[in-house]
């Protein structure tokens, strides 16, 4: 745990969302309310299609809140803003940009100093372990490497909060372990506030300071778990497996 004073950075106040269309209305999110402190790693964990992605989109300002509000340091989020970085499940890399082009995209469109940008990009390329691949196009990379680019791209724009939407959802079990270890490593070196969405319980416990368990649609907060196991965590330690069972059972009732 951090020993410096805990600072509230992001707050989600009583947020609800319903989609209207085709004469139907689908309630996706119901009265979600939580706070995130600076440099905390929060995992939003819930079953399959529970509305997690909609929630992340709202946090990112890409989707409007219908009720309630989301604010970053007491400032309401009303649209996309570069101090919120997003890592996507599909990676959403720009296929016409090289690895470097993708990572430098943010600072470039914001007209940041070129030399400074280059230095930052080099730093993060090194940090995510992509040295030597700067000039490759995304199509030439493996799934794990693409997601490394996605993480570096988000970091390079220097966001206050990183939003990660099931970033390892498409990867096989082993590559996933590798990426979880890599992300933990990166995060330890470059602490940021992270909100991470997943439906994989192992991933949630491995990475989280706190797990917010969501119910099935409409998503609401079912329960919260503070994870206080020392890092890096062991997937097969008795404490890990115990937690896994407890949380899985807590979720079971909601499916």
């Amino acid at each position: 745990m951090e020993h410096n004073a805990v600072k509230q950075i992001l707050s989600c106040r009583d947020v609800s969302k319903t989609f209207y269309g085709d004469g139907k209305c689908t309630e996706v999110i119901r009265h979600i309310d939580f706070d995130v402190t600076e440099n905390e790693f929060v995992v939003l964990f819930g079953p399959g299609q529970c509305g997690k992605t909609t929630l992340i989109k709202m946090l990112a300002g890409l989707e409007e809140c219908e009720e309630g509000s989301i604010s970053l340091e007491n400032e309401k989020i009303t649209g996309p803003r570069p101090d919120l970085g997003v890592v996507y499940q599909t990676t959403a890399l720009f296929p016409w940009c090289t690895v470097r082009g993708n990572i430098e995209f943010g600072p470039k469109v914001r007209n940041k100093d070129k030399k400074e940008t280059r230095k930052r990009a080099d730093h993060f390329i090194d940090l995510v372990g992509l040295k030597g691949f700067e000039d490759s196009y995304p199509k030439a990379l493996s799934g794990g490497m693409r997601q490394r680019v996605g993480i570096a791209r988000a970091y390079c724009n220097d966001p206050r909060v990183l939003l990660m939407d099931e970033p390892f959802g498409h990867l096989d079990a082993q590559t996933r372990y590798m990426m979880e270890e890599a992300l933990e490593n990166i995060w330890q070196k470059e602490k940021r506030t992270v909100i991470f969405v997943t439906n994989n319980i192992e991933e949630a416990i491995y990475l989280a300071d706190r797990i917010i368990l969501l119910t099935n649609r409409p998503a609401s907060i079912k329960q919260e778990f503070k994870i206080e196991l020392p890092r890096p965590r062991d997937y097969v330690s008795p404490e890990f497996l115990k937690l896994r069972e407890i949380i899985t059972q807590a979720m079971d009732a909601t499916v």
């Binding site: 570069p82 970085g85 997003v86 959403a92 995209f105 943010g106 469109v109 914001r110």
Partner: peptide, 27 residues
């Protein structure tokens, strides 16, 4: 053009004009 890519560019700070020249055009 993939909506996710447009969203990703907006999140990284691209305005309307930049989204057009750097996403829609190459895509």
């Amino acid at each position: 053009t993939d909506e996710t890519l447009i969203g990703a560019a907006r999140m990284l700070g691209a305005g309307k004009r930049k989204v057009f020249t750097r996403i829609i055009l190459p895509a």
